[in-house]
């Protein structure tokens, strides 16, 4: 894409955001009841207030730490079981029903069971973990199974070392599947992690703040927290994606 086309596209993006903000503001003005729909201006003010409180930063840090921990351990575990399932058919068959059960069980059921098992403090770690494992497992395994067997035969014939095989054949072939799984998994983690906190109410967490906003009907704070969650998850996803793309590039050097 040339520079002019890119500038045009960016302008359209800004326009789209402004358009929906204006629509939001107009609807809020028509309804004229902050409790039902807070206006964007009121939300921005509430957000500015939140930023000045220490509870905000504590809650943000605590939830972020737990959800990211769940995501990272879930990703590592998902890749690990995908690799051993690829290698051993018996293990693949063994994991298959388990993964299907996790995939189709409602998040709320998991949250309630997990609340009994691990208590509220580490609830979001376990829920994020459980949400990310099936996505990473399924996609990584699919990527591994899609590797051209002819290339593997070639590497066998030329006696390519397992390290070079992993770096130049397996990882580059699996990477596109893995990257899309990470993108989907991250979204799941944030949504389910925060939902878990709303039910489990661990101290100083985003979930607790959302719950309080709900019971005291603080709509503008609810909206402000939602914006914070969206921003933090988008930012984190961008960082992770950039890192993965960089790794992908380095592998081919």
């Amino acid at each position: 894409m040339n520079r002019q086309a890119r500038t045009k596209e960016n302008l359209y993006k800004v326009f789209a955001i402004l358009f929906w903000l204006v629509i939001w503001q107009v609807i809020a003005m028509i309804i004229d009841r902050e409790m039902l729909l807070a206006s964007p201006i009121a939300v921005i003010k509430a957000l500015a207030n939140l930023l000045t409180t220490s509870v905000f930063w504590q809650s943000l840090a605590s939830s972020f730490r737990k959800i990211v921990l769940g995501f990272l351990t879930g990703t590592l575990f998902g890749v690990f079981i995908a690799v051993i399932s690829y290698r051993f058919l018996l293990l693949r068959e063994l994991f298959e029903p388990l993964i299907k059960v996790i995939k189709s069980t409602p998040v709320a059921s998991f949250i309630i069971i997990a609340l009994i098992w691990v208590g509220s403090a580490n609830l979001s770690v376990l829920i994020s973990f459980l949400m990310v494992v099936p996505v990473i497992y399924t996609n990584t395994l699919r990527g591994l199974c899609e590797i051209d067997t002819k290339l593997l035969e070639m590497s066998h014939v030329f006696r390519v070392s397992w390290l070079k095989r992993a770096r130049y054949i397996y990882i580059p072939e699996v990477m596109p599947y893995f990257i899309s799984a990470v993108s989907v998994g991250l979204g799941f983690c944030w949504k389910s992690g925060v939902a878990a906190e709303v039910i489990g109410l661990p101290k100083n967490s985003i979930g607790e703040a959302l719950y309080e906003a709900k019971i005291y009907l603080m709509t503008k704070e609810l909206f402000a927290w939602t914006i914070v969650i969206i921003l933090i998850s988008v930012l984190f996803e961008r960082i992770i994606m950039a890192l993965l793309k960089w790794i992908q590039k380095q592998l081919l050097l």
């Binding site: 002819k150 290339l151 035969e153 070639m154 014939v157 006696r159 130049y168 054949i169 580059p172 081919l252």
Partner: peptide, 16 residues
């Protein structure tokens, strides 16, 4: 050690 030029090249397309 026996190596080959395969009928379908079998090169890693993404690599140089």
């Amino acid at each position: 050690k026996i190596v080959a030029v395969f009928q379908e090249d079998r090169l890693v397309e993404s690599l140089s």
